Amino acid sequence: MNEFPRMSVRDTFARDWYLFRLDLLLAGMPNKKVAEIRKDLRIELAQAAQDGEFRQALAGLGPVNVLASNYLEAHGRKVPRVWAGLVAFAVLLYGWLLGVISLIEGLYSAADQIRPDATVEVVRNWLFVQARVVAGPEGVDSIGFSLSGWGLLGWLAVLVIVPLICASVWRAWLPRPTADQAQRA
């Protein structure tokens, strides 16, 4: 039997959302320690709900990023290593998309200025992408790019392997916890 009364759906959602964000920010900390933190916070928030002060207790925990930062600092971990990989993924993806857009823009401008007598298709390859522009006497008919076959596999491999390498390098770069910090973790 549950010793705490049921919480409202709104309060349950607020608690679970807060704990979910905390879990994301505590990536890299041992799972056992994260489970302890979650359990303690659940008990604390359930007791506050029993007293009718759930909202105040949740606000009293403070911003989730500050709480996560405090827990990480207390356990000798400065920044979760997973974020290094996600940042690398985002930079790679946006850089690649910017390159593809620039390539298509260049092909479009060139085809628009040439104005050939017959329909012409111009194709260029760049980092696993095949960009093409079809131009005719009236101007550009179509533009596009494709990603298929080995190029698609290469692109996916780069977008997975590079972030994993960045996350591993970040982990190796962080200072090792002292014996005291390892014991607390």
Rank of each mutant, 00 (worst) to 15 (best):
P5A: 13
R6F: 09
M7T: 13
F13N: 08
R15Q: 15
R21D: 14
L22A: 11
L26E: 03
A27F: 10
A27T: 11
A27D: 05
G28R: 01
P30W: 03
P30A: 12
E36A: 12
E36K: 07
R38F: 00
R38P: 00
L41Y: 06
E44L: 08
L45S: 06
Q47M: 11
A48I: 14
E53K: 14
L58K: 05
A59H: 13
A59C: 06
G60R: 13
P63V: 04
N65Q: 09
N65V: 02
V66P: 04
V66Y: 12
L67P: 04
S69D: 12
N70L: 10
N70S: 13
Y71R: 06
Y71T: 01
Y71P: 03
Y71N: 02
G76W: 05
K78F: 14
K78I: 08
R81H: 09
R81N: 13
V82K: 01
W83R: 08
W83Y: 15
L86E: 00
A90R: 01
A90T: 11
L92D: 03
L93G: 01
Y94V: 11
G95L: 05
L98P: 00
L98D: 15
L98M: 07
G99I: 06
V100A: 10
V100G: 01
S102H: 08
G106C: 02
L107N: 00
S109T: 07
A110G: 06
A111F: 06
A111L: 05
A111M: 14
D112G: 02
Q113E: 15
P116M: 02
P116L: 01
P116I: 01
A118P: 01
A118C: 02
R124S: 13
W126M: 11
W126C: 00
L127M: 13
F128H: 09
Q130D: 15
Q130I: 09
Q130P: 03
A131W: 03
R132E: 14
G136K: 07
E138S: 14
E138L: 09
G139M: 08
D141G: 07
S142G: 12
I143K: 12
I143G: 01
F145C: 04
S146H: 08
G149D: 07
W150E: 11
L152P: 01
L153I: 14
G154A: 13
V158C: 07
V160E: 06
V160C: 14
I161K: 07
I161M: 13
V162R: 01
V162T: 05
P163F: 02
L164K: 07
S168Q: 09
V169C: 08
W170Q: 05
L174N: 12
P175H: 08
R176S: 13
P177I: 04
P177R: 10
T178Y: 06
A182K: 06
R184H: 08
R184Q: 12
